[in-house]
Design a protein around this nucleic acid. Sequence first.
DNA 1: CGAGTCCTGTGT
DNA 2: ACACAGGACTCG
Length: 268
Amino acid sequence: MPELPEVETIIRGLRRRVLNRRIANVEFLLPKLVVGNVDQTAARLRGQRIVGIRRHGKYIVFELERGRKRSCLVVHLRMTGNFIVDGDAGPHTRAIVALQGGPTLLYHDMRKFGRWQWSERLPERLRELGPEPLEITLEDFAKRIRSRHAMVKAVLLDQEFLRGLGNIYADEALFRARLHPKANTAKIGAKRAGRLHAAIRDVLTEAIAQGGSTIINYVDSEGAQGYFQLQTYVYGKTGEPCKVCRGKIRRTLVASRSTHYCSKCQRR
DNA sequence: CGAGTCCTGTGT
DNA sequence: ACACAGGACTCG
Protein backbone atom coordinates (compact mmCIF):
# COMPACT_ATOMS: atom_id res chain seq x y z
CA MET A 1 0.00 0.00 0.00
CA PRO A 2 2.71 2.34 -0.90
CA GLU A 3 2.27 6.02 -1.48
CA LEU A 4 4.94 8.47 -2.57
CA PRO A 5 7.21 8.20 0.52
CA GLU A 6 7.17 4.40 0.49
CA VAL A 7 7.92 4.27 -3.22
CA GLU A 8 10.73 6.79 -2.70
CA THR A 9 12.19 4.58 0.02
CA ILE A 10 11.92 1.55 -2.24
CA ILE A 11 13.71 3.15 -5.17
CA ARG A 12 16.51 4.31 -2.91
CA GLY A 13 16.94 0.74 -1.73
CA LEU A 14 16.81 -0.55 -5.29
CA ARG A 15 19.46 1.91 -6.37
CA ARG A 16 21.81 0.57 -3.74
CA ARG A 17 21.25 -3.01 -4.73
CA VAL A 18 20.52 -3.31 -8.43
CA LEU A 19 21.68 -0.14 -10.17
CA ASN A 20 24.09 -0.83 -13.05
CA ARG A 21 23.32 -4.53 -12.97
CA ARG A 22 22.42 -6.41 -16.11
CA ILE A 23 19.24 -8.47 -16.26
CA ALA A 24 20.14 -12.07 -16.97
CA ASN A 25 16.62 -13.45 -17.00
CA VAL A 26 13.06 -12.57 -16.01
CA GLU A 27 10.42 -15.07 -15.08
CA PHE A 28 6.80 -14.00 -14.75
CA LEU A 29 4.73 -16.22 -12.48
CA LEU A 30 1.60 -14.16 -13.06
CA PRO A 31 1.00 -13.37 -16.73
CA LYS A 32 -1.49 -10.57 -16.05
CA LEU A 33 1.21 -8.68 -14.15
CA VAL A 34 2.51 -7.62 -17.53
CA VAL A 35 0.87 -4.98 -19.67
CA GLY A 36 1.20 -6.38 -23.17
CA ASN A 37 2.76 -9.66 -24.19
CA VAL A 38 4.46 -11.59 -21.37
CA ASP A 39 6.99 -13.54 -23.42
CA GLN A 40 7.91 -10.56 -25.52
CA THR A 41 8.35 -8.44 -22.38
CA ALA A 42 10.60 -11.07 -20.81
CA ALA A 43 12.64 -11.21 -24.02
CA ARG A 44 12.89 -7.43 -24.17
CA LEU A 45 14.14 -7.25 -20.60
CA ARG A 46 16.80 -9.91 -21.00
CA GLY A 47 20.27 -8.46 -21.35
CA GLN A 48 19.24 -4.91 -20.37
CA ARG A 49 21.48 -2.95 -18.03
CA ILE A 50 19.66 -0.97 -15.36
CA VAL A 51 21.20 2.46 -15.80
CA GLY A 52 18.72 4.47 -13.74
CA ILE A 53 15.95 4.03 -11.19
CA ARG A 54 13.49 6.88 -10.79
CA ARG A 55 10.16 7.52 -9.14
CA HIS A 56 7.34 9.13 -11.09
CA GLY A 57 4.52 9.71 -8.63
CA LYS A 58 3.83 6.22 -7.33
CA TYR A 59 5.42 4.58 -10.37
CA ILE A 60 8.90 3.09 -10.37
CA VAL A 61 10.78 3.67 -13.59
CA PHE A 62 13.76 1.45 -14.38
CA GLU A 63 15.84 3.07 -17.11
CA LEU A 64 17.36 0.38 -19.29
CA GLU A 65 20.12 0.19 -21.85
CA ARG A 66 21.19 -2.54 -24.23
CA GLY A 67 23.83 -1.55 -26.70
CA ARG A 68 22.91 1.98 -27.74
CA LYS A 69 19.23 1.37 -27.24
CA ARG A 70 17.45 2.91 -24.28
CA SER A 71 14.10 1.77 -22.95
CA CYS A 72 12.30 1.56 -19.65
CA LEU A 73 10.38 -0.72 -17.36
CA VAL A 74 7.55 0.95 -15.50
CA VAL A 75 6.28 -0.75 -12.35
CA HIS A 76 3.27 0.23 -10.29
CA LEU A 77 2.99 -1.58 -6.95
CA ARG A 78 -0.67 -0.62 -6.43
CA MET A 79 -1.84 -1.97 -3.09
CA THR A 80 0.47 -4.80 -2.15
CA GLY A 81 3.38 -4.93 -4.59
CA ASN A 82 6.88 -5.11 -3.17
CA PHE A 83 10.46 -5.81 -4.17
CA ILE A 84 12.66 -8.12 -2.20
CA VAL A 85 16.36 -8.59 -2.82
CA ASP A 86 17.73 -12.04 -2.15
CA GLY A 87 14.61 -13.20 -0.34
CA ASP A 88 12.76 -16.47 -0.57
CA ALA A 89 10.12 -17.03 -3.19
CA GLY A 90 6.69 -17.70 -1.70
CA PRO A 91 3.07 -18.05 -2.72
CA HIS A 92 2.87 -14.32 -3.47
CA THR A 93 5.95 -14.15 -5.65
CA ARG A 94 4.86 -12.87 -9.06
CA ALA A 95 8.14 -12.24 -10.84
CA ILE A 96 11.77 -13.26 -10.49
CA VAL A 97 14.51 -11.12 -11.97
CA ALA A 98 17.94 -12.72 -12.12
CA LEU A 99 20.74 -10.17 -12.24
CA GLN A 100 24.11 -10.97 -13.77
CA GLY A 101 26.73 -11.36 -11.07
CA GLY A 102 24.33 -9.92 -8.52
CA PRO A 103 21.36 -10.70 -6.32
CA THR A 104 18.00 -11.99 -7.46
CA LEU A 105 15.20 -9.48 -7.36
CA LEU A 106 11.84 -10.89 -6.34
CA TYR A 107 8.53 -9.16 -6.86
CA HIS A 108 5.75 -10.05 -4.43
CA ASP A 109 2.16 -8.96 -4.76
CA MET A 110 -0.55 -10.58 -2.68
CA ARG A 111 -3.50 -8.91 -4.34
CA LYS A 112 -2.17 -9.09 -7.89
CA PHE A 113 -3.03 -5.46 -8.64
CA GLY A 114 0.49 -4.36 -9.55
CA ARG A 115 1.52 -3.86 -13.17
CA TRP A 116 4.77 -4.03 -15.13
CA GLN A 117 5.11 -2.38 -18.50
CA TRP A 118 8.11 -2.34 -20.78
CA SER A 119 8.30 0.39 -23.37
CA GLU A 120 10.79 2.34 -25.41
CA ARG A 121 9.80 5.66 -23.91
CA LEU A 122 7.94 6.83 -20.84
CA PRO A 123 4.31 5.72 -21.39
CA GLU A 124 1.87 8.47 -22.31
CA ARG A 125 -0.21 7.78 -19.21
CA LEU A 126 2.69 8.77 -16.96
CA ARG A 127 3.28 12.01 -18.81
CA GLU A 128 -0.32 13.01 -18.23
CA LEU A 129 0.15 13.00 -14.47
CA GLY A 130 0.41 16.19 -12.45
CA PRO A 131 3.58 17.65 -10.96
CA GLU A 132 5.55 16.11 -8.10
CA PRO A 133 4.09 17.34 -4.78
CA LEU A 134 7.58 18.12 -3.50
CA GLU A 135 8.48 20.16 -6.56
CA ILE A 136 5.43 22.29 -7.22
CA THR A 137 5.74 25.94 -6.19
CA LEU A 138 3.18 27.56 -3.94
CA GLU A 139 2.17 29.92 -6.72
CA ASP A 140 1.52 27.08 -9.16
CA PHE A 141 -0.20 25.02 -6.47
CA ALA A 142 -2.58 27.82 -5.49
CA LYS A 143 -3.47 28.49 -9.09
CA ARG A 144 -4.07 24.83 -9.90
CA ILE A 145 -6.19 24.14 -6.85
CA ARG A 146 -8.44 27.08 -7.47
CA SER A 147 -9.01 25.97 -11.04
CA ARG A 148 -10.73 22.84 -9.76
CA HIS A 149 -14.29 22.59 -8.51
CA ALA A 150 -14.49 19.55 -6.27
CA MET A 151 -13.91 18.37 -2.73
CA VAL A 152 -10.31 19.03 -1.81
CA LYS A 153 -9.68 15.44 -0.67
CA ALA A 154 -10.83 14.10 -4.05
CA VAL A 155 -8.56 16.56 -5.83
CA LEU A 156 -5.55 15.53 -3.73
CA LEU A 157 -6.15 11.90 -4.70
CA ASP A 158 -6.35 12.80 -8.37
CA GLN A 159 -2.97 11.88 -9.85
CA GLU A 160 -3.48 14.36 -12.65
CA PHE A 161 -3.54 17.12 -10.08
CA LEU A 162 -0.46 16.00 -8.17
CA ARG A 163 1.30 12.67 -8.64
CA GLY A 164 2.03 10.50 -5.64
CA LEU A 165 -0.42 11.42 -2.89
CA GLY A 166 -2.60 8.59 -1.63
CA ASN A 167 -5.30 8.16 0.94
CA ILE A 168 -3.17 8.34 4.09
CA TYR A 169 -1.04 11.33 3.24
CA ALA A 170 -4.01 13.20 1.76
CA ASP A 171 -5.84 12.87 5.09
CA GLU A 172 -2.75 13.76 7.11
CA ALA A 173 -1.95 16.80 4.96
CA LEU A 174 -5.51 18.10 5.27
CA PHE A 175 -5.38 17.69 9.03
CA ARG A 176 -2.10 19.57 9.29
CA ALA A 177 -3.50 22.33 7.08
CA ARG A 178 -6.70 22.37 9.16
CA LEU A 179 -8.80 22.00 6.02
CA HIS A 180 -12.02 20.01 5.90
CA PRO A 181 -11.71 17.18 3.35
CA LYS A 182 -14.99 18.21 1.74
CA ALA A 183 -14.00 21.86 1.36
CA ASN A 184 -14.52 23.12 -2.19
CA THR A 185 -11.22 23.74 -3.95
CA ALA A 186 -12.64 26.63 -5.94
CA LYS A 187 -13.07 28.52 -2.68
CA ILE A 188 -9.59 27.94 -1.29
CA GLY A 189 -7.88 31.31 -0.93
CA ALA A 190 -4.22 32.22 -0.68
CA LYS A 191 -3.98 31.60 3.04
CA ARG A 192 -5.46 28.09 3.01
CA ALA A 193 -3.61 27.17 -0.18
CA GLY A 194 -0.39 28.18 1.54
CA ARG A 195 -1.16 26.00 4.55
CA LEU A 196 -2.05 23.02 2.38
CA HIS A 197 1.01 23.36 0.18
CA ALA A 198 3.26 23.46 3.25
CA ALA A 199 1.40 20.60 4.94
CA ILE A 200 1.81 18.34 1.91
CA ARG A 201 5.49 19.13 1.70
CA ASP A 202 6.01 18.60 5.43
CA VAL A 203 4.14 15.34 5.74
CA LEU A 204 5.86 13.81 2.72
CA THR A 205 9.29 15.02 3.77
CA GLU A 206 8.85 13.63 7.26
CA ALA A 207 7.60 10.32 5.93
CA ILE A 208 10.51 9.98 3.52
CA ALA A 209 12.95 10.78 6.32
CA GLN A 210 11.30 8.18 8.49
CA GLY A 211 11.32 5.63 5.69
CA GLY A 212 15.00 6.21 5.20
CA SER A 213 15.71 5.69 8.87
CA THR A 214 13.30 2.85 9.52
CA ILE A 215 14.62 -0.57 10.41
CA ILE A 216 12.51 -2.20 7.74
CA ASN A 217 14.35 -2.24 4.46
CA TYR A 218 11.79 -3.11 1.83
CA VAL A 219 14.33 -4.23 -0.56
CA ASP A 220 15.87 -6.83 1.71
CA SER A 221 14.28 -10.02 2.83
CA GLU A 222 12.53 -8.47 5.82
CA GLY A 223 10.71 -6.19 3.38
CA ALA A 224 7.98 -8.77 3.06
CA GLN A 225 6.88 -7.92 6.61
CA GLY A 226 5.20 -4.75 5.43
CA TYR A 227 5.50 -1.07 4.82
CA PHE A 228 6.50 1.54 7.31
CA GLN A 229 3.93 4.12 8.21
CA LEU A 230 4.34 7.61 9.52
CA GLN A 231 2.70 8.24 12.87
CA THR A 232 -0.74 9.51 11.86
CA TYR A 233 -2.97 12.11 13.45
CA VAL A 234 -6.23 11.12 11.78
CA TYR A 235 -5.79 8.21 9.40
CA GLY A 236 -7.16 5.08 11.03
CA LYS A 237 -7.93 6.98 14.24
CA THR A 238 -11.72 7.01 13.95
CA GLY A 239 -13.34 7.62 17.34
CA GLU A 240 -10.07 8.52 19.06
CA PRO A 241 -9.45 11.97 20.53
CA CYS A 242 -7.58 14.45 18.36
CA LYS A 243 -3.99 14.81 19.54
CA VAL A 244 -4.25 18.57 19.15
CA CYS A 245 -7.69 19.52 20.50
CA ARG A 246 -9.03 16.28 22.04
CA GLY A 247 -12.02 16.47 19.66
CA LYS A 248 -13.32 13.28 18.13
CA ILE A 249 -11.78 11.98 14.91
CA ARG A 250 -14.51 11.23 12.39
CA ARG A 251 -14.65 9.02 9.35
CA THR A 252 -16.56 9.74 6.18
CA LEU A 253 -16.40 8.91 2.50
CA VAL A 254 -15.00 11.15 -0.21
CA ALA A 255 -14.64 9.85 -3.74
CA SER A 256 -15.66 6.50 -2.24
CA ARG A 257 -12.48 6.47 -0.18
CA SER A 258 -12.38 6.27 3.57
CA THR A 259 -11.59 9.78 4.87
CA HIS A 260 -10.54 10.77 8.38
CA TYR A 261 -10.64 14.22 9.95
CA CYS A 262 -11.04 16.13 13.18
CA SER A 263 -14.37 17.93 13.18
CA LYS A 264 -13.05 20.63 15.49
CA CYS A 265 -9.68 21.35 13.90
CA GLN A 266 -10.86 21.00 10.32
CA ARG A 267 -13.57 23.51 9.54
CA ARG A 268 -15.58 23.41 6.38
C1' DC B 1 -19.80 12.50 -10.47
C1' DG B 2 -20.54 7.50 -8.28
C1' DA B 3 -20.37 2.43 -8.70
C1' DG B 4 -18.23 -1.58 -10.04
C1' DT B 5 -14.06 -4.18 -10.95
C1' DC B 6 -9.72 -6.36 -10.18
C1' DC B 7 -7.66 -9.72 -5.89
C1' DT B 8 -6.49 -11.76 -1.24
C1' DG B 9 -6.05 -11.23 3.46
C1' DT B 10 -7.34 -9.41 8.07
C1' DG B 11 -10.23 -7.91 11.61
C1' DT B 12 -14.90 -7.64 13.75
C1' DA C 1 -20.49 -13.78 7.31
C1' DC C 2 -19.20 -9.26 6.31
C1' DA C 3 -16.72 -4.87 6.00
C1' DC C 4 -12.59 -3.10 4.83
C1' DA C 5 -7.78 -2.40 2.87
C1' DG C 6 -2.84 2.73 1.63
C1' DG C 7 -4.82 2.20 -6.15
C1' DA C 8 -6.50 3.09 -10.45
C1' DC C 9 -9.22 1.90 -14.46
C1' DT C 10 -13.74 1.48 -16.87
C1' DC C 11 -18.37 2.29 -17.39
C1' DG C 12 -23.01 4.49 -17.06
